[in-house]
């Protein structure tokens, strides 16, 4: 718990939620992205349209789903479509404004790894794999990434690129013919990073209260660049914290274990 009476995870989720404009159509990954997107819906963005890859469009879950296809998502959705339809018409068809992703690791150009740590044929750690992420990263209008920042997650070189961010940097996406803008922000428990306008390398643009630029550098596996005007993130408001804690509380209650 930081000085202000909130945890760094809470700051991360609040900061990520703020990125979603009301009314945006958002393709949401499970876990941290889903928590942030539903916090946005409970606070400043009641009309955000949440799409989950199970084919639920306009899902309005009261509790955070444990899986991408929980019954709650289907029951509260405006429409439920098949898996081929969600990827072909809605995502590849260009209907999604924002792809909201997590990852196990990213590099300085915000390429994402969710496949393996180590060698593919003889991996040190076998991760779940791609799921819907490669095409979300390709076709969503823009991509937001949320994950905790450390030397283990912010790496100099990825073992495996599962989903392309800005590739090798610069104009790589445009030259490769990818329709979406790619990652526009990475929200972590320490701060917010955004790609440089030219090089597309992630630079630290905001630092959360209670952390220093040195903390961010120490938690990054490459020499982290810092924006000329790196500002402190606005702390969570009482309303944001209350909404987030209520959401987490009823979700924990709904998924209570043995």
């Amino acid at each position: 718990m930081a000085e202000g009476g909130w945890s760094s995870d809470e700051m991360m989720t609040v900061a990520a939620a703020r990125m979603l404009k009301n009314g945006a159509v958002c393709f949401v990954g499970i876990g941290l992205p889903s928590a942030a997107a539903n916090l946005a819906r409970a606070t400043h963005a009641p009309d955000v349209v949440l799409i989950y890859e199970s084919g639920t469009i306009g899902a309005k879950p009261y509790v955070l789903p444990l899986s991408i296809g929980d019954g709650e998502l289907a029951e509260t959705a405006d429409i439920v479509v098949s898996t081929p339809e969600i990827f072909r018409y809605w995502l590849q068809g260009g209907r999604v404004d924002i792809g909201f992703l997590g990852a196990a690791q990213l590099d300085r150009f915000c390429n994402l790894n969710t496949t393996v740590i180590g060698d593919y044929a003889g991996p040190k750690v076998r991760l779940p794999g791609a799921g819907g992420a490669p095409e979300i990263a390709t076709s969503a209008g823009e991509v937001l990434v949320v994950l905790r920042q450390s030397q283990r997650t912010f790496v100099d070189e990825l073992s495996f690129v599962t989903s392309a961010g800005h590739g090798s940097g610069g104009n790589w996406r445009a030259e490769t013919g990818l329709p979406g803008m790619g990652p526009t922000a990475v929200i972590t428990d320490i701060g917010i990073l955004r790609p440089d306008a030219e090089s597309r390398e992630l630079i630290l643009t905001e630092i959360h209260p209670g952390f220093t630029v040195a903390d961010a550098k120490k938690s990054t596996g490459w020499p982290l660049q810092v924006a000329e005007f790196c500002v402190e993130t606005l702390p969570p408001s009482a309303a944001e914290l209350t909404s987030l804690r209520e959401l987490n509380k009823r979700s924990a209650h709904a998924h209570v274990g043995y």
């Binding site: 791609a130 992420a133 095409e135 390709t138 392309a164 990818l178």
Partner: peptide, 27 residues
């Protein structure tokens, strides 16, 4: 990826030899 396998089933159900999708660049 999910999109790939979903498309591959559509192609199978459609009696086509392959599926086509926009994806995998940089992957």
């Amino acid at each position: 990826s999910h999109a790939d396998l979903a498309n591959a089933y559509v192609a199978g159900a459609s009696g086509l030899p392959f599926a086509v999708l926009r994806g995998y660049a940089g992957c």
